[in-house]
Structures are given as structure tokens and as C-alpha cells.
């Protein structure tokens, strides 16, 4: 479903991704961990071309997105992205945040889009906030709305970049629960996270990223119990 082929990314002189070649199958839940600055976000952002790789290919559902002829807007519709800072649209109500993209891109009629939004809001437990503006929501609520907004485009893949890192501790759980439900529904997910329990419980495969490469990978529980790479051992010792 997602194939990266010798992916490299540099910012000027700074070589951040140093050759990532991976296959991610439909329905997998990839969790990405690793030290700060190792390139986790950059890797994730390359997958929907928020960062343009300096070398290598990315193939999503059989289509090369790094090909200059690729229709990137079309491809992005199939991939939702959830950001650490939520990035809700502050000038729009919760409902309008959710229905904007389906209506403008897919040309779905308003009542149909509203029905989708209501359904998603019930799923994330925020139906009563439908007319609120983002400024009036807590961080956890904002992030659940952001997830609902992405899901409204019915993506095949969901990308999460540290979705709970900007949250007060008491709000982390509500967001992780929504993500767990999403995982159970069969969504293909790539999640950069510092939540080791979530990684262990939900992840089907774990990438340990270090210095621009995936230094070690495997079933999360196995990597946690029995890390092979010295850098993985050191990292896990520090975070646990």
C-alpha cells in the first residue's frame, strides 16, 4: 500500500533521511519511535509530500507520488494527516472544519456532508460541540475534531505526527482511545509517537528511527523486550 524506495531528504546541507526503503501493507499500524531530530516527522511528511524527497520514490496504492506528473491533491485525499498542533481552522465552526474539504473537493452536497460530519462527531464523542469554534475547545477535543476532519475525506491511510505530545496528560487518553478505535476498524496507520504503551498495544509493527534510517523494526512487544540494536537499547532505557 505504501512503498518507499531509498528515500532521502536533505534540508540544504543537513542530510535528514538517509535511505528509507519500506513496504507498509494495507491495515498495518506502524508506530515510529526514535530520538528527537532523527527524522520521524520528516519521514511521515514525505509520505504525503508535505516535504519533497530529494531522492528516492514513494508509491502509494501502486501510484508513484514522487513522479512529477502525479496529481498530488488527488493522492492526498486518500491520506489523512493529524498534526501535533491540531491545526484546526479557527475561523470556522467545528462543523465547517469537517465539511469544508468534502464539499470543496469531492463536491458532496451540504446535507450529505453534514450527515457524515455528525456521524464522525458521534464517533469521537463530540457531537455536542458541532457549532462550537476551535478557540473554545480543549486540546484533547481539538485533536479529536482534527481526526474527524481527516476521516471525513474517507482516507485509506492515516498519518499521525505525535498527536498527543501537545496535550495535557489528562487529555492524552481520550485521543488515544479514538485512535485505538480507528485501528480496530482496520485503518492503515502510520503513527509517530512517544506513547510507548500505545505503541505496544496498537502497533502491528514498530520502526525505530535513528539518524535518518530505520535502525531496527519488528513487532513492538518483541522490540521492547529484546532490542537488538545498541541505539535502540539506549533509547528505550532512556524513555522507560
Amino acid at each position: 500500500m505504501i512503498i518507499t524506495n531509498n528515500l532521502h531528504k536533505s534540508f540544504g546541507e543537513l542530510h535528514v533521511l538517509k535511505g528509507v526503503s519500506e513496504h507498509i501493507e494495507k491495515g498495518e499500524k506502524i508506530v515510529v519511535i526514535g530520538p528527537s531530530g532523527s527524522g520521524k516527522s520528516t519521514f511521515l511528511r514525505c509520505l504525503n509530500l508535505l516535504e519533497v524527497p530529494t531522492q528516492g520514490d514513494i508509491i502509494i496504492e501502486g501510484e508513484s507520488i514522487t513522479d512529477p506528473k502525479a496529481n498530488i491533491n488527488k493522492i492526498r485525499q486518500k491520506m489523512g494527516m493529524v498534526f501535533q498542533q491540531f491545526n484546526l481552522f479557527p475561523h470556522l465552526s467545528v462543523l465547517d472544519n469537517i465539511i469544508l474539504a468534502p464539499m470543496k473537493i469531492k463536491k458532496i452536497k451540504k446535507d450529505e456532508a453534514v450527515a457524515i460530519a455528525e456521524d464522525l462527531l458521534k464517533k469521537v464523542g463530540l457531537f455536542d460541540k458541532i457549532d462550537s469554534f476551535p478557540g473554545k475547545l480543549s486540546g484533547g477535543q481539538k485533536q479529536r475534531i482534527a481526526i474527524a476532519r481527516s476521516l471525513a475525506m474517507s482516507p485509506d491511510i492515516m498519518l499521525f505526527d505525535e498527536p498527543t505530545s501537545a496535550l495535557d496528560p489528562e487529555m492524552v487518553g481520550e485521543v488515544l482511545n479514538v485512535m485505538k478505535e480507528l485501528a480496530d476498524s482496520g485503518m492503515t496507520m502510520v503513527v509517530v509517537t512517544h506513547e510507548m504503551n500505545f505503541a505496544r498495544e496498537v502497533g502491528s509493527r514498530l520502526f525505530f528511527m535513528d539518524d535518518g534510517v530505520i535502525a531496527e523494526q519488528g513487532v513492538p512487544a518483541e522490540v521492547f523486550e529484546n532490542p537488538q540494536n545498541d541505539r535502540t537499547k539506549e533509547f528505550l532505557r532512556r524513555v522507560q
Binding site: L50, N73, R76, Q77, N87, L100, I105, S150
Partner: peptide, 22 residues
């Protein structure tokens, strides 16, 4: 904030659409 543009683009809106609506 640049996050607004990124959020719009990641939903599949074009740059011009993101400019116009967001």
C-alpha cells in the same frame, strides 16, 4: 501559521483553494 496551509493541503485542497478558504 504555516500549519494552516499544511492542514489544508493534507486534506487534498489545492494551494489556491487553501488560500481562498483558509
Amino acid at each position: 501559521d504555516n500549519g494552516q496551509m499544511e492542514a489544508g493541503r493534507s486534506l487534498g485542497l489545492s494551494k489556491i483553494q487553501t488560500m481562498a478558504y483558509i
